[in-house]
C-alpha cells in the first residue's frame, strides 16, 4: 500500500479505536456516539480495502444500531456504568488476555495467498455445505439458537411482571 493508503488507514484506525473505547467504557449518549464513530471508521477502512458494498452495509447497519442504542438509552443518566460482580470482573480481565493472544497471533502469523484445498469457496458452495452435507448439524444449531432466544424472551417477560 502506498503513502495515501497508509495515511487513510492510520486516520480512520484512530477514529475506530476512539469509538471502540467510548462504546466499551462509556454509558448513555457517549456510548451511541462511540458506536457511530466505529461505523464511520470501519466503513472507511472497508472502502480502503476495495470492499465498497461491505462498507455501505456496515455504515448503515452500525449507524442504525447506534440510533437504536441512543433511543433505548434515552432518559438514563450518563453515569450508569455498573461495575458488576466478580464473574464480570474476571470476564473483563479475560478480554484483555484475548487481546494479547490475538495481537501475538497477528504479529507471529505467516500469511500467504492460495486457493482453498476443498475447491471453490463461494455462495453456491456454502449453500451446498449448509443444506446438503452438514444439514443435520445446521438444524441442531438452529434449534439450539431458537430455544435460547425463546427462553431469553420468556425470562425477560417474567422479570418484567
Amino acid at each position: 500500500m502506498d503513502t495515501l493508503h497508509s495515511g487513510i488507514f492510520y486516520a480512520f484506525a484512530a477514529v475506530t479505536v476512539a469509538g471502540g473505547l467510548l462504546a466499551a467504557l462509556a454509558a448513555g449518549r457517549p456510548r451511541a456516539l462511540g458506536l457511530a464513530l466505529v461505523a464511520a471508521g470501519l466503513a472507511a477502512l472497508y472502502a480502503d480495502l476495495d470492499a465498497g458494498f461491505a462498507a455501505l452495509v456496515t455504515l448503515v447497519a452500525l449507524g442504525l444500531s447506534a440510533l437504536v442504542l441512543l433511543r433505548a438509552g434515552a432518559g438514563r443518566t450518563a453515569t450508569a456504568l455498573e461495575p458488576g460482580t466478580l464473574v464480570n470482573q474476571l470476564g473483563a480481565s479475560l478480554a484483555g488476555v484475548v487481546f494479547l493472544v490475538l495481537a501475538y497471533i497477528a504479529f507471529r502469523g505467516a500469511y500467504f495467498a492460495g486457493y482453498h484445498a476443498g475447491g471453490s469457496f463461494n455462495t453456491a458452495a456454502l449453500g451446498r455445505l449448509l443444506v446438503d452435507r452438514d444439514a443435520l448439524a445446521v438444524e441442531a444449531v438452529a434449534a439450539a439458537l431458537l430455544t435460547g432466544a425463546a427462553a431469553a424472551v420468556l425470562f425477560a417477560r417474567v422479570r418484567a411482571r
Binding site: 479505536v17 462504546a23 466499551a24 470476564g91 490475538l102
Partner: peptide, 14 residues
C-alpha cells in the same frame, strides 16, 4: 483484535 477484545470487555464488564 482490539475491536474484538473491546467488545468482549464491554459484554463481560457490564
Amino acid at each position: 483484535g482490539f475491536l474484538f477484545a473491546a467488545g468482549a470487555f464491554a459484554v463481560a464488564r457490564q
